[in-house]
Amino acid sequence: MSKTVPVLIASIVGCIMIVANFSPFLLPARQIAEDWFTIVATIAMMLGGANLCVHHLKNISDREAGWGFSAVTLISFFITIAVGLLKIGVVPESEQQVKFAWSGPFQQEGSGFWWIYQYLFSPIVSTMFALLAFYVASAAFRAFRAKNLEAILLLITALIVLVGQTRDREITSLFLPPPAEGMPQHVPIADLTEFIRKTFVTAGQRAIMIGIALGVVATSLRILLGLDRSYLGGDE
């Protein structure tokens, strides 16, 4: 019974979503279902916050590897919550508002929460994102080792696309002699890159996407018909 109700809810709501795609009559019902998801997810957010505190407090208590990071996480968590909830640094935005700090929005420019976001959170996220360039280089280095025919083809294609993203017209004229009179001009690598991206890459991606769409249909049917309940913990 503990699994029956969730499966029933999943099936009915899933069917509403499908039918609403074809029947405008059910659009309000779809909106209701989406609103309910938002409500449930918001409640779960509190559960997540509680779990985060318990998890990191346990890490600190047990002196597990990296417990110092847990301490930093908890301190940051509580400071951010306090600054956001107490609206530290928020001022009334207009004469019409009451002269009380809480009357302004918590994300107001110049407020404590805004400062944390602008000068702490945003730079940290940007730093993380910048690291991606090095990970791409390291992954490409391994992937493009010319160990067999497929890898060689991949390497050549990658080089063409890479050079095609640069100022290739100058590079092409630098390495290749000018074409003989009456012969066609060299194809710029940028054009070749576009050809590869628009033809081969798009074709491959679309093939994968067709497979994904069919996979989604089959998986959805498994869930709607209650054939697969492993995502809820199975039948046990």
Binding site: M209, G211, A218, S230
Partner: peptide, 8 residues
């Protein structure tokens, strides 16, 4: 892609 959905 689809192999992920077929996995289960």
């Amino acid at each position: 892609g689809e192999e992920l959905f077929a996995a289960s």
